[in-house]
Every structure is written in structure tokens, then in C-alpha cells.
Simulated assay, not measured.
Amino acid sequence: MTRTAVMFCAALGLTAAVGTASAAPAGSPPAARQQVRTPVLVDCLWHPQVRPADFLLACGDGNSRLVSLHWSNWGTDSARATGINVVNDCDPYCAVGTFHRYPVVVKLDRSEPWKKNPRVEHYSRITLTYPGDRPAQFAPVMTYPLWN
């Protein structure tokens, strides 16, 4: 009985494989090549993220992070969001500084293969635009490379 079940499953698997192969046109590329790879945002712990609600910018000390992110676009060329940049003023020093909140527009771009997994594209640059108030040491537009 076991032998019959194994033979039946093998025949069923062979039928499915032949049916799948014959259904695809002869010159078509594999499905993986046809898919557009949407880039990810790599966080401080090397986890890929898509449309995160929060993102830590200062991995070493946590003194700058993006929160309340609302993504209007996440595409192959770029991603855009609005949110809040929470920044420590480090006055008189960072351990006792005060965190301040600044509205910000976030743009991710320059997708490239991720070194940890080259089959995955990741955004390699982030641009922060402050439409109003901003930290004293920041320009209205700040652009940073993202880690790989």
C-alpha cells in the first residue's frame, strides 16, 4: 500500500512538472527575471524593511530617528514619506539632552544590490527635507548615504 501511494505521488508530481513546463512559451525568461525587484531599507540590525513606520538614523547612539512615517510611494527608483525626525540636542551632553521633534519629508533612492544578499536591492541614500523648524546644526535639506 505504501508503495502504491509513493508511486501515485511521484506520477502526480511528474504530471504537474510537465504541465508547468509545457505551459510556458519556449523563449520566455524565468519568472524571477520577469519580476521587478522592489528595494528594501536596511535597518541598524541588518534587517530588510519595506515601508517601516519608524527608522533609526543614528545606530550608534540612538540620538536621531524617524517616527510616524507615512509612505506615499515605494518604487524601484525611489520612495517618499512624511514623518517626524526626533533628534537629541545633546545639551549639555547627549546623556542628559532633550529630544525635539521636527516634521520631515523623507526620500530614499539610489537602489543597488545589498552586499549581505546581492539578489536584494536596497536604497543606498536618504534625503531629509525640513519644511519648517529643524535642528540648529542641520541644513534645510540633508542627504546621507545608507549602510550596506
Rank of each mutant, 00 (worst) to 15 (best):
R80D: 09
W71Y: 00
W114A: 02
V6R: 11
D109M: 09
S72Q: 15
Q34A: 09
A16W: 07
A10I: 04
Q137E: 10
C59P: 00
S124G: 07
A53D: 13
G13S: 15
G75C: 15
G27Q: 13
T4D: 12
S111I: 06
S64A: 15
D91G: 05
V86C: 05
T38C: 04
D54E: 15
D89P: 00
A24V: 13
L41Y: 08
R101E: 14
K116Y: 01
Y93S: 04
I84S: 07
C94P: 04
A5P: 08
G60R: 09
F8C: 08
F99K: 00
G75K: 07
G19Y: 07
W46V: 07
A24M: 05
G132F: 04
V50D: 09
D77H: 14
R33K: 11
A5E: 01
A81Q: 05
D54A: 15
F99C: 03
E112S: 13
L57V: 06
S111G: 10
P39H: 12
P118M: 00
Q34T: 12
F55K: 03
S111E: 02
S111W: 00
L12Y: 02
D54C: 02
D77G: 14
V105H: 13
G13I: 14
A17K: 04
V96Y: 02
R110Q: 06
A21S: 14
W74Y: 13
L57E: 02
G27S: 09
G27L: 11
R51E: 05
A5Q: 10
G27R: 15
L69W: 01
V96D: 04
C9G: 03
K115N: 02
R51C: 03
R125W: 08
R51F: 02
S111Q: 11
L41V: 10
V18L: 15
G62W: 13
A32K: 12
I126P: 00
L128H: 02
V87D: 13
C90M: 06
R80Y: 09
